[in-house]
Amino acid sequence: MLKQAADVLKNASRAVVMTGAGCSVEAGIPDFRSPSGWWRQIDPRTVATTEALEHRYELFHAFYAARIEQLREVRPHNGHSILSKWEHQGRLQLIATQNVDGLHQAAGNRNVQELHGSIRHFRCASCGRPGAEQAFLDRAPCTCGGRLRPDVVLFGEQLPEEAWHASLAAIRAADVVLVIGTSLQVYPVNQLPFLTDGTLILLNAEETGEDHRFDLVLHGRAAQLLQAMDEQ
């Protein structure tokens, strides 16, 4: 099946990749959805919310400050580099990612749509004015007096419209969609892969409830599977 997947990608002219947390875990970033990824025994789904931003800012700030500090030591893995190579070879048209860590861009990909925003950028929660990372870490207020926040999509917020529409258009036009490292549990992004008429390929560490909807399924570590596909 690996060779079959590699052949499909080799013959593709409009390939699109969609990545989730599993693609970043191998670079050393915990999966905050797994029990082992919980931060201080707190479910991030109760911290990464509009309610926490407004009413529990100290906890909200501590959570994101810890994530930002952790990212200082993280580098893209070989799988990220392979996706970058495929883009530069003209095989890969776009990456639609649920990850907020910027590792695809750090590896050299240019056409990346961040469906859940970016933890590398900051803005005022009150007026929307851009802010700096260090100002956020220092808990410095915006010039309007508002609190700074990472430019990520919190639970309770809408996805960025531009990223959504660009990803949707690319997936609808794709002849192959390669989905990497996602449990396909988060709505509405989990619907995107199934809006293509192209070949659907899933690379994931474990089974999802949607495996049966894919044309090809490979279970294993993202970096290793991408390396094997690239060699094929």
Rank of each mutant, 00 (worst) to 15 (best):
I42C: 00
Y64W: 15
K85M: 12
A6N: 04
A222P: 06
L83T: 02
S34F: 08
P150W: 02
T208L: 06
L184F: 00
F194E: 07
H104V: 02
G22R: 12
T208P: 08
H116F: 05
P30A: 13
G28R: 13
H61S: 00
S34Y: 06
A52E: 09
T199V: 15
D175M: 13
R129Y: 00
G128H: 09
A173Q: 14
R213V: 04
I82P: 00
R172D: 07
D230I: 08
S183W: 03
T19M: 06
R33P: 01
K85H: 08
E210V: 03
V177P: 02
W164G: 12
T50C: 07
E69V: 07
R56H: 15
A132D: 13
L59P: 01
C124E: 05
I95Y: 08
A222M: 12
N99T: 07
P188R: 12
H121M: 05
A173Y: 01
G22Q: 11
Q98D: 08
R67Y: 01
F155W: 02
Q224C: 06
H121N: 10
D211C: 06
A222C: 08
A27V: 02
D151T: 11
G181K: 04
S36I: 12
T199L: 01
Q89V: 04
P44A: 09
A65M: 00
H116T: 02
S81G: 12
A48N: 08
G128D: 03
G145Y: 05
L225C: 03
G37C: 11
L94K: 14
G145L: 08
S118Y: 07
I82W: 01
T19N: 03
L115P: 05
V17L: 11
I119M: 13
A96P: 05
V8K: 01
L9A: 12
G128E: 03
E207M: 13
A12Y: 02
P150A: 04
P188E: 06
H212P: 02
A27L: 03
I180W: 03
C23W: 01
W86F: 10
A174C: 04
R149P: 03
R40L: 14
G117W: 00
M18P: 02
G131N: 10
S118K: 08
E157S: 04
I82C: 04
T46D: 07
Q98F: 06
V176C: 15
D215R: 10
V186P: 00
D211L: 12
A166Q: 13
F122L: 11
N11L: 08
P44E: 03
P76D: 09
G37W: 05
A170W: 01
H55N: 15
A52W: 11
Q224I: 13
R56F: 05
H116Q: 13
L200M: 01
A52C: 09
T208Q: 09
V153W: 01
L148D: 05
S24H: 09
E114F: 06
